[in-house]
Every structure is written in structure tokens, then in C-alpha cells.
Amino acid sequence: MSTELEPLADPGLPHHVHRKADTDPAAEKRAERQVSILFLLSAAGTLLFIYSFIWIPTDVFVFLPLLGNTNAHQLGIGTGLGLALFFIGAGAVHWAKTLMPDEEVIAQRHEMRSSDEDRASFVETVKEEAGKVQLGRRSLIKRSLGLALGLVGLSPLILLRDLGPLPEQSLLKTTWDKGIRVVTDPGNRPLRPEDLEVGAIAHVLPEIKDPEHRKLSDIAKDAAILIRVRPSELKLSEERMAWTHEGIIAFSKICSHMGCPVALYEQTTKHLLCPCHQSTFDVPTGAKVIFGPAARPLPQLAITVDDEGYLIAAAPFDEPVGPSFWERNI
């Protein structure tokens, strides 16, 4: 298959050229000195490391060009240790290059493949030993062993069952419910409509009894944002319009794509941007996706005010918040 005509001849390994240090004793001495200087530099590095570790306090900062105001302790131990290690290596390599034998050596390769006799006798041995076991004839044993091995392989999976609970309904529900007040995050202060002027945003959570001990897994579903625009700017269906209050509209803050907090609100364009993957949501149209990988709008939370004039949820979220999952049904 090869089209090889006659190739150019191999001239063989080039003639070995001696180094200066091989022929000139002065050069050899010089190389030796260079190697030991490198090793001494390493020793100096270790001393710097020890000095810095013990005697430079950890709260001292020095100003250095390029680095700025930098911690002196960290810089001292790092530089010391780094140089100590580096120069050991540099010394060893320089030693190998200048003073150790540099004549290239040729070793022969052997094919990986075993010889044909070895292979034949291997096959023979396997056949013979397998024949003694008579696995081929004892199909009952073979099948029952197969079954046993297959089943025992299941046991680790079963053992891992208690890693976590089953999802049940937990992805479908949040803390938000009819009448729950909207409170600021952080701060846990209730909000009235007049606290938000047009162009304002508030990061909020549902009011709970013990705000000091909110569970992170609740926050991961409950986090929401309130945004106020002019009511005339909202382009919503009548039903969704009823979910807003005097131009205040509430959305889940958890991205419908991969769950990052979507919180970059631009009051000029009325866009919400997710900083993780740049999905962009259009607030006036109910957080419709106008750019990026997210496929669904942010879930909208129906809000209204209670008797005391505080903003409350008018209903729980009507769809699961956060990223999609197999059982999600909308």
C-alpha cells in the first residue's frame, strides 16, 4: 500500500560535540561553581521563608509597584519558599546539563506483541483450564451465577437510597401564600406601595415568624423581586394585570434557566438580566425572555395590599420556581 520509492538515506546520529566543560577544566570549575551558587540561592530562599514566617507580623502591608498594597508576611514566606524550591530544581538541571554525561544513548525497542508461540500456548492454557471447569456444560451454574452477580450489583444502589428524600411535591411549593407579607432582604421590614417609587426595585422574601433562622433551601425558592413601573407601561393580560398593584410587579428572583438570582434590573430599558448566562427578561411583558438561553419567563407572584396597607402575596406562585425538571408540568 505504501508508495515508498527509494527514500533519502539516513545519515545516522550526528557526531557528538563535546561541551566546554568536558574539555576545558576551567569551564568545568565554572559550571560547578554555578551549580553550587544556585543551591546556595535556594538556601537563602529558605532563610527568607523562615525569617518572614517568624518575624514579619501578618498584618503588615507594603506598597509595591504593580502589586499595590500587599501583605508583607504572605509575600515574604511565598517568595522565600518559592525561590528555595525553584533554585534546587534550577541547580539540579544545570548540573545535569553541564556536568553529567551528555552523550546520547541508543536503546533498541521490541515489539509489544508476544511471540506467536507464547500466544498459542496462552490460548491453549486458557482453553484447557476452562475445559476443566466445564463451564460450557454446566449452564445451570453459569446462569445462576449470572443472576447472583447481577443482583448483588444492585445492592450498592439500594444502599444509597437514604442519601436523600424523594422529591414529592417540594419543588412545586414555596413559602409564599395568600396574605403573607413581603419583607425586605436583608432587614425583614414590610413594605408599603409608597415605599417604592417608579424605577425602584426591592429584593424581598416572605415574612416568617423567625427570620433569623430562614433555611437556605427555602430562600432558594422564595427569593423574589418587586419592581415599580408606571402602570401604563405594563403590557399584561387582564388576569396578570390583576396580579400587580399600582404598577408594582413581583417576580421570582430565581432564574428559570439554572437557578441563579436574576437581579440585574435596568430601570431605563426595564430589562432583568441574569449574570450567570445572560438570559434577559422583559419586565413590562411579564418577564418574557428576550435574549439568552432561558426558555421560560420568570414566574410572576400575585400581590396586593392588606388592611394596614402593606404589600402581601395575593396567592402562592402558580407554577414551580427555578430551573426546569422532568416532572415539571405547565
Binding site: G82, L85, F86, F87, I88, G89, A90, A92, W95
Partner: peptide
Amino acid sequence: GFFFIVFGVTV
């Protein structure tokens, strides 16, 4: 030697 060099550069 190269091990020490890599270690040194990393530090």
C-alpha cells in the same frame, strides 16, 4: 530538578 522548578513557580 524539574519537579522542584514546577513547585517553585507554583509557590
